[in-house]
């Protein structure tokens, strides 16, 4: 089955559930899952297709969230415009950071991105006068367009899922072309890819930047939806959580990651009493996947498709 048909089916399911679900708790949880899906789709391009790990993506989500919120609060810029500007700025920062770090081999890259995520968090914690530090940032305005305000969970649910699925479509189309082949070539044999005309380093930087822009956009939307952000939503554990979602979903499988993202973002909310154990569960999921299920849910999906 063509992935685009599959995507259409999912869009229909999402729309129908949006109409019939009545619990604001459920709707808001699913809306947040959609925002997370934006991040994991971007990370999947980087980790799943290109084989480059990032353990600092929550830092880029934070960058997007804080920059767009601050632009809107301190400079009274229109929220949409501030999300746009913040995404462009974070992508720029991503490119500047990615350029030197993506020359590193995989295990060094893991450490470097982990460090970058930490630096962003430290800076946010530290600049109390601007970001509010550990207290967080409040009074972020609502998103609205042509007098239509995204003020309830259902409205935002539709908007978040529309954005997430559109970006999913963009990613699917991109990877179904020569660019997707180039990325997978880089993932499996860098030197051969280079010999066949693929500028490996440039591609890595571009995909890293693209995944940073996804993360940043999700961060911006998150800030305006929740109306409050604090550095604790964007720590290392969150970065690793994104990696867990991509790994469990199956690196390089957009639909596998779609499902793992929904499941793994809902479960902690349902079992909120077990919050302490969640990082351990994440750890076990990673180890388990690498020992027994290196393709994650991917296998399951190629089986369903057939």
């Amino acid at each position: 089955m063509d992935s685009r048909i599959f995507l259409a089916i999912i869009a229909v399911i999402v729309a129908v559930s949006g109409i019939f679900l009545n619990s604001p708790f459920l709707l808001s949880m699913l809306a947040l899952a959609a925002l997370t899906l934006i991040v994991t789709t971007g990370l999947n391009l980087l980790l799943g297709f290109t084989g480059q790990i990032s353990l600092g993506h929550a830092g880029f989500v934070a960058l997007g969230a804080y920059m767009s919120a601050l632009l809107a609060i301190k400079f009274s810029i229109n929220p949409w415009l501030s999300i746009f500007i913040a995404t462009i700025l974070s992508s720029l920062i991503g490119a500047i950071i990615g350029y030197p770090t993506l020359k590193l081999k995989s295990h060094y890259l893991a450490m470097a991105t982990l460090a970058i995520g930490e630096v962003i968090n430290i800076l946010i914690m530290g600049t109390v006068s601007i970001t509010g530090g550990p207290q967080g940032l409040t009074a972020i305005p609502m998103l609205s367009i042509f007098g239509f305000t995204f003020d309830d969970d259902r409205k935002f649910y539709f908007f978040a899922w529309f954005t997430a699925l559109s970006l999913l479509l963009v990613s699917i189309n991109l990877t179904k072309s020569r660019f997707g082949r180039a990325l997978q070539a880089i993932k499996s044999k860098e030197i051969a890819a280079e010999a066949f005309g693929i500028n490996v380093h440039m591609y890595k930087v571009i995909i890293f930047t693209l995944s940073v822009s996804y993360a940043s956009l999700a961060g911006g939307l998150f800030a305006f939806y929740i109306g409050f952000i604090s550095p604790f939503s964007f720590g290392i554990l969150n970065s690793i959580e994104y990696v867990v979602m991509v790994v469990i979903g199956g690196m390089g499988s957009f639909f596998g990651v779609l499902f793992s993202t929904i499941i793994l973002s809902i479960l902690p909310n349902i079992f909120s009493g077990l919050k302490e154990f969640w990082p351990i569960a994440d750890g076990f999921l990673l180890v388990f996947a690498m020992m027994f299920l290196p393709d994650g849910l991917k296998k399951l999906f190629s089986w369903i498709k057939q």
Partner: peptide, 17 residues
């Protein structure tokens, strides 16, 4: 390399958690 990195990250999470 990639899967070993992912695995060690997982182990670190388990230990510290």
């Amino acid at each position: 390399d990639l899967s070993l990195i992912i695995m060690t990250v997982g182990i670190a999470m388990i230990l510290r958690g």
